[in-house]
Design a protein around this nucleic acid. Sequence first.
DNA 1: AGTCCAGCTTACTCATAGTAGGTTACTTGC
DNA 2: GCAAGTAACCTACTATGAGTAAGCTGGACT
Lengths: 203, 203
Amino acid sequence: MTVTERKRRMPRAERERQMMGVAEEIFAERGYAAASMDEIAERCGVSKPMIYEYFGSKDGLLVACIRAARAELAENATRAVIGATSAEDALRRGLVAFFQFAESRRRSWAMMVRNEVALAGTGAMDEIEAIRREQVEIDAAMFAAFLPDKSPTELEILAQIVVGACERLSIWYVSQDEVTAVEAAEQLLTVLWRGVGGAVEGR
Amino acid sequence: MTVTERKRRMPRAERERQMMGVAEEIFAERGYAAASMDEIAERCGVSKPMIYEYFGSKDGLLVACIRAARAELAENATRAVIGATSAEDALRRGLVAFFQFAESRRRSWAMMVRNEVALAGTGAMDEIEAIRREQVEIDAAMFAAFLPDKSPTELEILAQIVVGACERLSIWYVSQDEVTAVEAAEQLLTVLWRGVGGAVEGR
DNA sequence: AGTCCAGCTTACTCATAGTAGGTTACTTGC
DNA sequence: GCAAGTAACCTACTATGAGTAAGCTGGACT
């Protein structure tokens, strides 16, 4: 371990960045609930009230981390989309940038997307993941019957798309009351069978 | 308020059901973190150690609630699918059942799907929802340019589908290393433009 | 009419989020 | 240089809520 400059006095901005880095690490490692402010402070080489001075609360610290991750992702995506030749190409580049971001900055990404942050290390998290897993398998099996040419990997991707779409659509669905369950299901099915255009008749 | 039979001795199974009902209510109301075991116990008319006797821990109680919700949803879906005339019809009926469940049993559904359970009432939750909202709006605007005939509601649905699919696909993506970011993006695009079949050439 | 035990309680411990109030050392104006 | 001001930092606390130890009670079944 490097002995050089352990316990240095730092200007606020620099200390804040360090704290967010350490926090992100610990949140991703143990989960938000299990992360202790004392531990974060200690790893920063500073005492707890400093974190409260700068971020106000544990939740405030998490929010700051999420904001930073969001900004970084947005920047990546923006840069990726520059020079796109069409809207479709822009979407493609945006998607690729997103997946690459998820891969290379797993911790940042986990704070934005995964329940891990909130529930990591809990039985509840495992339970919910098991439900999704089960659903993915059911869907993949169903698609396999429909599409014998697809590889297992492709089937997996399709199933993940369906499960993700369902989940998010259900969240939107309960927040409004214009669209009925039947209509929502119909829309989703149309996209799945015919793509977003969906206008092409005859399946 | 009903005075009849307040504070009754109950057999274990009945008390467990009551506890899960109360817990579900409070988890959905205040969020998992902000829910206190003492409050749950009090609303049940018993003392805290009883809950620990039956469920072991706060997490255990949440898991039990999730399991119950899962079982109920599974039963609904199974019943809905009976009598389906084709696989497509089965999928349609399953989706409708899912959306209806989400609507009629919001609290149960929230425990399975929403981060609400873990992060409800926190700034972090708002932050993440804001990111999703932003992304949905960007996507909806993009689709609007492509598909001028679609209603705002239909565009919203499309955007929700895309965001949900992205999120889940990214989670799957980082858990494997067979498929590259470009391939994952390509697969998602294919589904979006042409549907799960995707074989039909010429967009 | 005694024994057993499921259902229940009181009264704790312990970890950790959050805070009050003070100390240290770097900068800035003279 | 040296006082004054303030940014960075600390120790030592409170408060809350998860989880537990140890014991009480009333009905069932010999």
